[in-house]
Simulated assay, not measured.
Amino acid sequence: MTATSRPGRPVLLGQNQYGKAENRVVKITRDGDTHHIKDLNVSVALSGDMEDVHYSGSNANVLPTDTTKNTVYAFAKEHGIESAEQFGIHLARHFVTSQEPIHRARIRIEEYAWERIATSDANSRFIGADEVRHSFVRKGQETRLTQITYDGESWEVVSGLKDLVVMNSTNSEFWGYVKDKYTTLQEAYDRILATEVSGRWRFNWTDDEQKAPNWEKSYGQVKKHMLQAFAETYSLSLQQTLYQMGARIINNRAEIDEVRFSLPNKHHFLVDLEPFGLKNDNEVYFAADRPYGLIEATILRDGAEARIPVDLTNL
């Protein structure tokens, strides 16, 4: 199709996509008296033969975004939600294989975790603990993420998390850095190291012929290795800790080829208590929220290609 043009210069349509963003779906699985919750925020983006709708307004190739929303809810019933990754794979495959004009589907999912509320012992006034398996409290640790992309031939699955706040109250130093006339920071030989982890990891599963990973187990194991590396690394810099977190994942999870972290340094500065006649022996700190150092890097398996965007907000 010839692009709409201005005199002497064509105006061309570039990359484009459309879909329904942030479809909130909560799936309750009732296993007798025991209930299980999956709480997702699903965003669908579709691309393909969409030139006509942009150039002329013809909707002949357009699957309504309302239909994509309905599909999310119907699939929650028809397929269930075993994991965010598997649910996204079902959706991406459906959109690409059921609609000829759609060549590529990208599904982004945030998952919000809930944990079961512990109850008291049974007595004459209240429902007993052995009877209550349907009450939950929203976890505040982190938001789980995944993005599934399918073009009809190959898959790309990138999972991750954000808003995971961690702290080491010791075993962290920062000294020996470059100093110039603007440097005022004092060297630290025993400091608090804290950050809010935003991380993504790319799986090497690329097609249906391969056996897919156990997505739920993989997420739990990645988080375990990440946290253990943070806790067990005697840190001389946040960069060193970041590398160890990524390396621990790569070395222990064969299904993952690439890890990218964005780690803001949540600074804790010792408060000067001398004006009050008090000695601050690494006990009282001021938690500064801004400005903050921002440490970012990608860790790769040998021979792997970096594909996760540098800006994690774009994923």
Rank of each mutant, 00 (worst) to 15 (best):
D207P: 04
T65I: 07
E82D: 15
A21V: 08
V165T: 14
K223V: 12
T170D: 15
K181Y: 10
A231K: 06
E100S: 12
R93C: 07
E173Q: 14
P275K: 01
P264E: 08
R30A: 15
E142H: 11
F174P: 00
L91P: 08
W114K: 04
M50F: 14
E82S: 13
V26Q: 11
Q186R: 10
H36M: 12
N41Q: 07
K38P: 00
Y243E: 15
T184I: 09
K139T: 05
D39V: 06
F87Q: 04
A194M: 13
D33H: 08
F136E: 00
T67F: 06
V165Y: 07
T143M: 11
N214P: 00
K27N: 09
S159H: 01
D49F: 01
Q147G: 05
F87V: 04
E258H: 04
E274N: 07
G80R: 03
V165K: 13
K266L: 14
V197R: 00
F230M: 04
Q210P: 08
P7K: 04
T71C: 12
D151V: 10
D208C: 08
R301G: 05
H225D: 14
E82N: 11
H54M: 09
L145Q: 09
E111V: 04
P7D: 08
A231I: 00
L161R: 03
G152F: 08
D52S: 15
Y177A: 09
Y234L: 05
S159R: 02
R104H: 14
T241K: 03
Y150Q: 11
M50Y: 02
I250P: 02
L294P: 03
V178F: 07
A105K: 05
V72I: 12
A212R: 08
T97N: 15
P64S: 13
I107D: 04
S124L: 11
N214M: 02
M1G: 15
L63V: 15
S47P: 07
K38E: 10
D302V: 01
A118F: 03
V72K: 00
L238N: 03
T4W: 00
L227G: 02
P291Q: 05
L185R: 11
E258S: 03
R6A: 13
R200K: 11
Q228A: 06
E232V: 02
Y234R: 08
L12Q: 07
N23E: 13
L278E: 12
Y285R: 04
R307K: 12
H134S: 14
N41C: 13
E255M: 06
